[in-house]
């Protein structure tokens, strides 16, 4: 190995030497024929979701409330645009950032002309993005079990559009709602076939902290508000 990889051989050598004696397995997992249990069993142990789409949506709605994510069901893209327009008026937005995608392009042309738009796809100025009032992205998936929005760096406007502006708006379709994290990972694996985006992020509610006296404060560094506009 080249010098750049540091003490590779020494570390691996110590690991192999250390592992010559076996360690006992103290908590044998059920349903494993030796070795580690398979991921297919996780959902037997994790919080239940329910198999029907309406059960999934109900759980996602309930968790969104707990997390203080703002979920809005929109009949069509026009209704989603109207919801964005309303938020713009409410928070007095001047400039918002978004990325290109079939879904968001449909939304973009319905937004009020008074709103300045920053499109991040061809690169962006960090200060300009930071100064935006909101960021709009699509997403890979929504996860019912955890109330999460899954975004990736290649699909949803890069690494920071979903976290730098103070208000993150996600536009998603109902068909993107999967039941649990196991299904989410399986779905990403079959979509990307080993060539994953450089970032996969499960966003669960707006940015939060409890570092001061364990009192919940939203918008620690990332978005203070997370709005999810759910299309049929």
């Amino acid at each position: 190995m080249n010098a750049n990889s540091g003490d590779r051989n020494a570390v691996l050598g110590r690991i192999r030497e250390a592992l010559r004696e076996e360690a006992p397995l103290k908590h044998p997992a059920e349903r494993s024929a030796g070795g580690a249990p398979t991921t297919a069993h996780f959902r037997e142990w994790l919080p239940p979701v329910g198999s029907r789409i309406d059960e999934r949506l109900e759980l996602f709605t309930r968790l969104s409330q707990t997390l203080r994510s703002e979920l809005t069901l929109c009949e069509n893209i026009a209704a989603a645009a109207a919801a964005v327009t309303e938020l713009a008026a409410q928070e007095n937005w001047k400039t918002i950032a978004l990325h290109k995608s079939d879904l968001l392009d449909g939304l973009r042309c319905l937004l009020p002309a008074s709103l300045n738009l920053l499109t991040v796809d061809e690169g962006y100025d960090k200060d300009a993005l930071e100064a935006c009032d909101a960021g709009i992205t699509q997403c890979e998936l929504l996860v019912a079990q955890t109330g999460s929005v899954c975004v990736t760096s290649s699909n949803d406007g890069g690494r920071v559009l979903s976290v730098l502006p103070p208000h993150h708006i996600v536009v998603a379709r109902r068909s993107q709602l999967v039941s649990d994290l196991t299904e989410a990972y399986a779905s990403l694996a079959s979509k990307y076939r080993g060539t994953y985006p450089s970032m996969i992020s499960f966003i669960t509610g707006p940015s939060r902290t409890g570092d001061i006296e364990r009192i919940l404060v939203l918008g620690a560094h990332g978005p203070k508000r997370l709005s999810i506009l759910l299309l049929p």
């Binding site: 968790l63 955890t146 109330g147 994953y196 996969i200 499960f202 966003i203 940015s207």
Partner: peptide, 8 residues
Amino acid sequence: HMTGYNSM
């Protein structure tokens, strides 16, 4: 039930 950001 899930931390705010879990990123890979």
